[in-house]
Amino acid sequence: MELTYVDQINQAAAYIRGRIAGREPVVGLVLGSGLGDLASEVEDAITIDFSEVPHFPVSTVEGHAGRFVIGTLEGKTVIVMQGRFHYYEGYPMRKVAAPIYVMRKLGVQTAVITNAAGGMNRAFRPGDLMLICDHLNMTGDNPLIGTNDAGLGVRFPDMSEAYNKSYRELAHRLSSLIRSDDGDSLELQEGVYCGISGPPYMTPAELKMLARLGGDAVGMSTVAEVIAARHCGLEVLGISCITDMAIGEELEPLSHEQVMEVANRTKPRFTLLVKSFVRAVPV
């Protein structure tokens, strides 16, 4: 008999639970393109490749290691997704969102969901970190389409505060305490993330449309995971690393290698911010 979606999630969670020796992670982190090195900060770590987990696909994108790292970060037990699955890889939205439900089954209460994104707000610069205050789902799909299982969440989940406001306020407070090499504090941007299907980067006309709709940054991930997180009761902090400027009127050619290069340069500040948040968040 074919397993249901919930059965698959339960089996995946049971496998991971059997590998982590009684640990119960309270914070789950999803690390986007070029940001995966934060996982090296996890202490007493257990590593599980996605390919080992029942019903999991594999991540096929450069900059995504494709594994879980479970251990201690800033005094809390965490589970880190070093890489993720994308809709543009050919995976159904439910498959993209499944790891979030698995994290919830393992005990996670707070999700930190990150990505590399193009900046559409003219006040942004490559290398900025943007706290996500809201999103536009422009993928044309949704992970909740289909039969709802009450064991995961309600049929019609509320999305009025998809990204926890108190978490954003905490991140802003923490950023003021983080100093760069020249002594300046870390200034965070805040804005609306537009999630698209990809894999092509957008045309100038498409970017102008998204900016007029209220978007500040654009990327090919995150929205499905956040929808699933809110569906199953997780509180979310979303962070975009602005790797390039995606302004329709001034668009220049872009490659994935350029995105990775800027994300790599931003990693020290990103790492400090996320570690400070994990230490301070009340879970």
Rank of each mutant, 00 (worst) to 15 (best):
21 A>D: 04
22 G>M: 09
22 G>P: 01
23 R>S: 07
23 R>K: 14
26 V>S: 11
29 L>M: 11
31 L>K: 02
34 G>I: 06
38 L>T: 03
39 A>Y: 12
40 S>I: 08
48 I>K: 05
49 D>P: 00
52 E>A: 12
54 P>F: 15
57 P>E: 04
58 V>A: 06
62 E>L: 13
65 A>F: 13
65 A>K: 13
68 F>G: 01
69 V>L: 15
73 L>P: 01
84 R>I: 06
86 H>Q: 06
89 E>W: 13
89 E>G: 06
90 G>C: 06
91 Y>N: 04
94 R>Y: 13
95 K>T: 09
98 A>G: 00
99 P>D: 08
100 I>N: 06
104 R>L: 08
105 K>L: 12
106 L>Q: 05
109 Q>L: 12
118 G>L: 05
118 G>A: 07
122 R>K: 09
122 R>N: 03
123 A>I: 07
124 F>Y: 11
126 P>E: 11
130 M>W: 03
130 M>V: 07
131 L>E: 05
132 I>P: 00
132 I>T: 11
133 C>N: 09
139 T>D: 09
139 T>M: 15
140 G>R: 05
144 L>N: 02
147 T>V: 12
148 N>C: 11
154 V>S: 04
160 S>R: 04
164 N>W: 14
168 R>S: 04
169 E>W: 13
172 H>F: 15
179 R>A: 06
182 D>S: 06
184 D>F: 12
187 E>Q: 07
189 Q>G: 10
190 E>P: 00
190 E>W: 09
196 I>M: 14
200 P>N: 14
205 A>N: 03
206 E>M: 05
209 M>D: 00
210 L>H: 07
214 G>V: 08
217 A>H: 02
224 A>R: 01
226 V>C: 14
228 A>L: 12
228 A>I: 10
229 A>P: 04
232 C>E: 10
233 G>V: 09
239 I>H: 02
239 I>E: 02
240 S>Q: 07
240 S>V: 12
241 C>R: 03
250 E>S: 10
253 P>H: 11
254 L>W: 09
259 V>G: 07
262 V>N: 01
269 R>S: 08
271 T>E: 11
272 L>Q: 14
273 L>I: 12
274 V>G: 06
277 F>N: 01
277 F>L: 14
277 F>M: 11
278 V>D: 03
278 V>G: 02
282 P>N: 11
